[in-house]
Amino acid sequence: MAASGNTSDVFAPWNDASATPLIRFEGVTKRYGDFTAIDNLTLDIYEREFYALLGPSGCGKTTLLRLLAGFEEATEGRILIGGKDISKVPPNQRPVNMMFQSYALFPHMSVAKNIGFGLKQEGRSKDEIAQRVAEMLTLVQLQEFAKRKPHQLSGGQRQRVALARSLAKNPKLLLLDEPLGALDKKLRERTQFELMNLQEKLGVTFMIVTHDQEEAMTVASRIAIMDKGIVAQVDTPAMIYEAPKNRYVSDFIGDVNFIEGTVTAQQDHEITLQSAAGQDFILHSDKPLAISSTAWLAIRPEKIAVSKEPPEDRRNKLQGIVDDIAYSGSISTYHVRLSNGDLIKAQMTNQRRLSNRAITWEDNVWLSWTDTAAIALTE
């Protein structure tokens, strides 16, 4: 599901002033004694979104999920689904289902009975349950495993059973709490795309809690970066990565280099930033920055070129010595030590075999980047 661009078929209801959110958190605060887990939080989540809550342990993302599911009650504020305040609605009466990291499958039940359990609890007829279970088994491609017990399945298969059970009751909203955490890397990556395809096919709103940055960047239409009970930024994955609002968000998503400096000039969108060492850097900024104010140049490692000769066509360049190299198969990360002792990370794709690498440890190198590669951050 596309989330950025200018074409008419782009899915971006958050940019439509007339769109009504499916879920709204209004000034929600959750306290446990003297500890504030969620602090005066306001969020809108729209129908058919794949919304990710991302942040370190203890930032409040799981608490937010539990408030929405009804397992916790807000200390202050309101939570609305479809315009209705659900603060006093018990969990089993909310149009919400939750899939836990542990999957919580019943070990003594077959796959089919696990999937149909919620429907049976609602008092649905046997024929209705059987039909819906068959639909869910087809959806997650587990038809031939209907009679097996959970212990007879792989981790990925158990994950799909838990997903099918969560979707069987046709919830408006599916909450996923670290749903792929128990899977190995390759299976997790494959399952991410399965989740995306399934969510788009069903049109159900998904809200996922994860600490895995790559997972959030892959599956989400929008990401909310959380920090100590507040939301630092909500945006599409591309905007979170390319246009973070502050150093916390920039540093949390991927690798980034910071160079602190003073704004010495600005003409239109072009900023001149002078570092403490007296070196000038050129970068673009969409917002005006006050002359003599402090700002940080933020640049991603993959946007920095490494060369043995000084680049003639770039105004932004630094010289240093290769301190370390991290080889990751398709890319190598160069840790370059500057004359002032600072380390700058630069990444390059490995287009040659390792033995033919042109740059190695202790080499004197130049780091350079274009005028539009870096951004200016003021906080």
Rank of each mutant, 00 (worst) to 15 (best):
Q233R: 07
A52D: 12
G58W: 02
A182S: 13
R78S: 10
L173I: 15
L183Y: 04
M99R: 03
G261I: 05
M196L: 14
N356F: 02
A37R: 05
F11P: 11
A37S: 14
Q101M: 06
F71L: 15
H284A: 14
E379F: 00
Y46W: 15
S250Q: 03
D227F: 00
F71A: 07
A277K: 13
L289P: 00
K287W: 02
F145W: 11
K113R: 15
S57D: 10
E128L: 00
Q347S: 12
L187I: 13
V96K: 09
A305W: 04
E309N: 13
L183G: 06
S292W: 06
F145G: 01
V322G: 12
E128M: 03
L173E: 06
T75Y: 11
I225Q: 07
I331A: 04
S87Y: 01
A74L: 01
F25N: 10
V219K: 03
P13D: 13
N257E: 09
A238C: 05
P56N: 11
L198E: 12
K84F: 08
A3M: 10
G33W: 08
Q141V: 06
L64H: 01
L367I: 04
N340F: 06
T7A: 15
V336Y: 03
H269A: 13
P179H: 11
I291H: 10
I208V: 13
E260Y: 06
K186W: 00
K317P: 00
R165D: 09
Q93I: 02
D127H: 13
I81R: 07
R158S: 02
M348E: 14
K287G: 04
R314C: 06
K61V: 08
F25P: 08
R148M: 04
I223S: 04
R315K: 11
M196F: 00
L142H: 07
H108S: 10
S87T: 14
T138G: 12
D371S: 13
P237L: 03
M98A: 00
I38Q: 02
N257Y: 04
N246D: 14
L176K: 07
A74Q: 10
A37I: 07
W366A: 06
V231Q: 09
F106W: 15
L64T: 15
T63A: 05
V249R: 05
K317Y: 12
V336H: 07
K169P: 05
A295Y: 01
L139A: 09
L367E: 05
S221M: 08
S368G: 13
D16Q: 12
G203H: 07
D16M: 11
E135Q: 15
D342H: 06
F71N: 02
N92D: 13
L187S: 02
E312L: 10
T138N: 14
K185R: 15
I129M: 14
A232L: 07
T264M: 04
P288R: 03
G70M: 08
V336R: 04
K169G: 01
A146H: 11
K126I: 03
W361N: 12
N92E: 15
